[in-house]
Amino acid sequence: MSRIDAAFAKMGDNDQTGSLAPGAAGGPAPTESDLAFARNAASDVLTKGDKDSSQPWENPKTGARGSVTPLAKAYSEDGRTCRDFLASYVNGSNESWLQGAACQVGNGRWEIHTLKPWRQG
């Protein structure tokens, strides 16, 4: 198992979703608006299902941007197909990474259920 796969093994029930604490990723935290753009990009790239694909995102209001890349293979959780992803976050000179997980819901759509600062290690 690679370091990235290990970092995204199964996320527990106590993992936070939604807002990120300021400074948690080494700089200003993404705004809720930034996270919405990242979530939309994640849903888009997961829906496409292309192997080794990536989806850029940008929030014109804040200038934040990045890309979302699915990781590893899909897995089953509570009877749903799920997949982990990594999202870059760039705002000015600040760069960081977010880790996330999503599961398929009706009509092949993907629902993002975890998005938080990526902690290497």
Rank of each mutant, 00 (worst) to 15 (best):
Q104Y: 01
V105H: 04
K48R: 11
V45L: 03
A41G: 06
M11D: 09
R80M: 07
A74H: 07
K10D: 09
G18V: 12
R109A: 08
R65V: 01
G66H: 06
G49V: 03
P70L: 05
S53L: 00
E111G: 03
L86N: 02
K73Q: 13
S43K: 12
L115A: 01
A72G: 15
Y89F: 15
G49H: 06
M11P: 06
L86Y: 00
P28F: 13
F85M: 05
A24Y: 08
E111N: 11
C82V: 01
D13F: 12
G23L: 14
W57C: 06
A64Y: 05
W57S: 05
G106H: 04
D44S: 10
Q55N: 07
A24V: 13
T31I: 06
A36C: 00
V90F: 05
K10E: 11
N14C: 08
S43A: 13
A74P: 09
G100K: 04
W110K: 03
A38H: 08
D44N: 11
R109D: 10
T47Y: 09
P60T: 07
S54W: 00
A64D: 04
A25T: 15
D13N: 11
T81Q: 13
G18N: 15
A64N: 04
S43Q: 13
D15L: 14
K10C: 02
T47G: 08
W57F: 07
P28K: 14
K73F: 06
A24Q: 14
G27A: 15
K61P: 00
R83W: 02
N40A: 14
A42E: 07
T69A: 11
P30V: 11
S54L: 06
A41T: 04
A74N: 09
Q55S: 10
